[in-house]
Amino acid sequence: MHINQISVFLENRTGGLAEITRLLAENNVNLRALSIAESADYGVLRIIADDSKKASSVLLSSGNILSMTPVMAVAVPDKPAGLNELLEVLAEGDISIEYMYSYNTREDGTAYMIFRISDEKKFLEVLAKHGMKPVCPSDLNIK
């Protein structure tokens, strides 16, 4: 149920991000989702790749600092208020979200949100109560 997110330390300088994407491009890794959290001098790049093992070994071998973080993806209806309904449920269930971002898909009618939650057990309970659950990596065609 977990999806492997690769978190990469990114120094804030021109061309820093391009170095990473170039590396992935050269190794034929496809990026499925990406988010950056930044402060003045550095940032954390968070990516979901179609092949997380390959992506991480490529990045590591070129000297990057990274960590693998288990995250969860939840499907939301791709329509107005789709995300809001889910977030209302989480708010009501007193679930605190560390961070989240959206996941690209070409499927019609469904969007996905990637969640990093500290209390995953409670998260799953709240979802289950509303008949929802995170999707598997295979559902998203990633490994």
């Binding site: 978190s7 330390f9 959290a37 402060s39 600092i65 960590s67």
Partner: peptide, 15 residues
């Protein structure tokens, strides 16, 4: 220099 041990996916932890 950032190290693997000190790195985290959470920006607030690094901060």
């Amino acid at each position: 220099e950032m190290t693997a041990e000190n790195f985290s996916d959470s920006l607030s932890k690094i901060n």
